[in-house]
């Protein structure tokens, strides 16, 4: 009976983390779309949503703490609950990158984009999709899926390098473009960091299932 209620509480917690992750993914996509359309109002909303994400993070942490205190988990339960902590704080930091992109768009004010955005939205879509699938893999304890996602980070890195080279070309040909190029470099950098953190979520899935705590590259 006790075990049954604990399991349903764990399931609730997983659902809440998935929903929390969706907030973060959506806010990232929104931050890039607002930039693409130069819609500063939408970026202000992105910043507001990030405040909600920050608050939600503490609420979720508190729920995990209560579960630990009341259930005194062991073995896999313990690994799962401690991974909740890790993933909740990863997601909160990933949310900060969306906010960062929102702030860049706000700072740009009425300036036009250096160039129409093509690769940056692709990077955002790829990163958000990776984050989503990493969370689903975590919740389903799907080791194979968790192991396959980190390799996709190479695609994000390739896009980042491509954007970097392109923006450097702009700067070389027109030093007045430095500031505008720099804004976009920061956006791309935020997206690259966002995708990097997805790997940490995948590592936790392996830890929960196998009890193996370590870098995912060593397990591939």
């Amino acid at each position: 009976m006790l075990r049954k209620s604990f399991e349903s509480e764990i399931q609730n917690m997983k659902n809440e983390i998935l929903a929390f992750g969706s907030m973060v993914e959506q806010n990232l996509l929104e931050s890039v779309d607002a930039l693409k359309t130069r819609d500063v109002n939408r970026s202000h909303k992105v910043v507001e949503v990030d405040k909600i994400i920050n608050k939600k993070r503490f609420e979720l942490e508190n729920e995990v703490m209560i579960l630990i205190a009341t259930q005194q988990p062991m073995a896999k339960d313990l690994r799962l609950l401690s991974s909740f902590f890790e993933i909740i704080s990863e997601l909160e930091r990933m949310g900060d990158y969306a906010k960062g992109i929102g702030v860049i768009n706000i700072r740009m004010g009425s300036e036009e984009l250096l160039k129409p955005l093509v690769d940056i939205p692709r990077m955002a879509e790829k990163s958000a999709d990776m984050a989503h699938r990493a969370l689903v893999a975590f919740i389903n304890e799907d080791v194979e899926a968790a192991k396959s996602i980190p390799a996709e980070d190479d695609e994000v890195d390739a896009l980042y390098n491509q954007i970097y080279r392109e923006l450097i070309t702009y700067i070389i040909s027109d030093p007045k473009a430095i500031e505008k190029a720099n804004w976009l470099l920061w956006v791309a950098h935020n997206l690259e960091r966002f995708a990097d953190r997805v790997i940490n979520i995948c590592e936790r899935t392996l830890f929960v299932v196998n009890g193996r705590l370590g870098e995912i590259e060593d397990a591939l």
């Binding site: 075990r3 988990p73 062991m74 073995a75 896999k76 690994r79 009890g211």
Partner: peptide, 17 residues
């Protein structure tokens, strides 16, 4: 044995199954 037991019977016992 309390964080990552290797035998399923141990896992079941320490997690209260």
């Amino acid at each position: 044995i309390f964080t990552a037991p290797t035998v399923k019977k141990t896992e079941d016992y320490v997690t209260g199954r």
